[in-house]
């Protein structure tokens, strides 16, 4: 299970770095520089990524070429947005540190922290 997640991650990383569409063959050759891997495995995982909506593809000749739907930064931002916005569903993800201190509060607390320097013993 972990292995498959790793492969998804590796394939997405490759496609993000290319910044252009790539076929399963292109990705396979790239991956083979680091590990032994079968064409069908890569094809299956890329098909799965397409189903998940992370890759889009179009047919070129007899094969598909794939490209990422959005940048890694955009996906991360979206993940953070949905995580933080779902503050209502805390049973799913426990997000804390959402509250912001007012500038006065944080100044007062920073002063209090100086009394207990973080480097010192508590």
């Amino acid at each position: 299970m972990r292995g498959l997640g790793d492969l998804e991650s590796a394939i997405m990383e490759r496609l993000w770095s290319y910044r252009r569409p790539a076929s399963v063959r292109d990705v396979l050759e790239d991956l083979r520089r680091e590990r032994e891997i079968a064409y069908t495995t890569v094809m299956t995982v890329m098909d799965k990524l397409h189903t998940k909506g992370l890759l889009r593809r179009k047919a070129v000749g007899r094969a598909y070429v794939y490209e990422t739907v959005a940048s890694k930064e955009a996906y991360t931002a979206e993940l953070m947005r949905s995580t933080l916005a779902s503050g209502g569903n805390q049973a799913a993800t426990l997000v804390h540190f959402l509250e912001r201190l007012t500038p006065e509060e944080s100044t007062a607390l920073e002063a209090a922290l100086k009394v207990y320097p973080p480097g010192g013993r508590a």
Binding site: M80, R81, L84, A85, G87, F97, L98, E99, R100, L101, T102, E105, S106, L109, E110, L113, Y116, P117, P118, G120, R121, A122
Partner: peptide, 26 residues
């Protein structure tokens, strides 16, 4: 150390709120 936890709390709760966070009060 409790001081480290406190310092981390202040650090993370200071500055601009994450764009999509709801809570304002601290």
């Amino acid at each position: 150390s409790r001081a480290h936890i406190a310092a981390a709390l202040v650090r993370l709760a200071t500055g601009p709120a994450p764009a999509s966070a709801l809570g304002a009060g601290g």
